[in-house]
Computed example of a mutant assay.
Amino acid sequence: MDVLIHLFVGLHIIGIASLLGGFLTQMSAMGKGTARFNKAMLHGALTMLVTGVALVGLNQADDNTVNNIKIGVKLAILIVILGIVYVKRDDEVAEKGLFATVGALTVANIFIAVLWT
């Protein structure tokens, strides 16, 4: 079971890398007002959602302790990110404030995962 959990943790990290990387590559465009939500951001957020749910299930099945409040907060943040990226994915230009919000929420989600024990 540990190998499966570690596999999903790796996939979860790939998802966050895709979401954050998609944001970071568009930061210079955000300064110019031409940033847009790209497919990497959408697929990264979806990967995080699927692997995160799988990780909670696998950890509970393995009788590991799961902090449900932490998971709930992370899930709520991810749903907001996913909602924004999904709805605005076809827009030619993303609003600066909305684009910055997605980046800030992504970084917040990372810090919640790492620092909340």
Rank of each mutant, 00 (worst) to 15 (best):
M1D: 06
D2C: 02
L4P: 03
L4R: 06
H6Q: 10
F8G: 02
G10K: 02
I13F: 13
I13C: 04
I13G: 00
I14F: 05
I16L: 13
I16F: 13
A17T: 15
S18W: 00
S18C: 09
L20I: 12
G22L: 02
F23C: 08
L24M: 14
T25C: 15
Q26T: 00
G31W: 03
G33Q: 03
R36A: 13
F37A: 01
F37P: 01
N38C: 15
K39R: 15
M41V: 06
L42W: 04
H43N: 07
H43I: 02
G44Y: 03
G44H: 00
T47C: 14
T47G: 10
M48I: 07
L49I: 07
V50N: 04
T51I: 07
G52A: 09
L55H: 09
V56T: 14
L58K: 06
N59H: 12
Q60F: 11
D62L: 10
N64Q: 08
N64F: 10
V66Y: 10
V66N: 10
K70E: 10
I71H: 09
L75M: 15
I77W: 07
L78Y: 01
I79D: 00
V80Y: 07
V80N: 10
L82P: 03
G83Y: 11
V85W: 01
E92A: 14
E92C: 00
A94V: 09
K96E: 07
G97P: 04
G103R: 00
G103E: 02
A104S: 14
A104G: 15
T106N: 10
T106Y: 02
V107T: 12
N109T: 09
I110Q: 01
A113I: 01
L115F: 14
T117C: 08
